[in-house]
Design a protein around this nucleic acid. Structure first.
Lengths: 126, 126
DNA sequence: CCGCATCCTTAGAGATACTG
DNA sequence: CAGTATCTCTAAGGATGCGG
């Protein structure tokens, strides 16, 4: 079993504000991508998710899905076929998160060019 | 000089979609907190930021600010007093990002309880 | 086909001390 | 006061093989 949890960093200070834990989870590398994919495509199987998300490994996929399931954002359904079929779907909570994530994605898409331009200018200086 | 950049992971696949780079930066541990703080308090000095953000180290603060400055999200102003005074302010681009981040924060705050409940239930099972 | 367990590598983050 | 540089070390993440 891995001991990562939320990596303790937040709990170090006595603040331990739960908002930070949530933000931390959202900030996770793969969370946004998984949420976005599930929101776009609805219910997906593990393998479909894996091939939809460029670069994700089996381990990270499963791990992130576990976290999201634990947080009540994703529902995991197991159908006892042979071999077993496992599907993932956003819960209502997950869909509401999906909306927020969509806002972020929209921002990113919209301002991509500005950022690239800013970077070029920054790197050109000095 | 640090070689982190965007940690190369995204560029591995030939996709290299710039959106991912942006998402990656946003997902960074401290980015949201710095943006939020600057949005709330306006212009701040390095030290003020440091003491406003529980748990951040000098190193991470500077590093993240550099990234944000490079992306055109934060403006860095140096006043040649003795000792030197350095202030940070959100650019217009930064403020627009601040709005998106606020959405995320709001979501987190709003659904904190649901998430904690889901976790408890999840941990109780099995 | 799904995902768990193990090993291994390295980047990221802390602590500390030094320069302008 | 702001920032950089160095050293260390943890733990996130990739690769692989097994088991249901």
């Amino acid at each position: 079993m891995d001991t990562d949890q939320v990596s303790g960093r937040w709990d170090a200070g006595k603040g331990a504000c739960p908002t930070r834990q949530v933000l931390g989870r959202i900030g996770d590398t793969w969370t946004m991508l998984i949420i976005t994919t599930l929101e776009r495509d609805g219910t997906l199987r593990s393998g479909q998710l894996k091939s939809s998300i460029e670069g994700i490994t089996q381990k990270m996929l499963t791990q992130t899905l576990r976290h999201l399931e634990r947080d009540g954002v994703v529902r995991r359904d197991v159908v006892a076929t042979v071999p077993v079929t496992v599907t993932y779907t956003l819960t209502p909570l997950g869909r509401s998160l999906g909306a927020a994530v969509a806002t972020m994605r929209a921002w990113a898409y919209q301002h991509m060019d500005d950022i690239v331009a800013a970077r070029n200018e920054y790197d050109a200086r000095d």
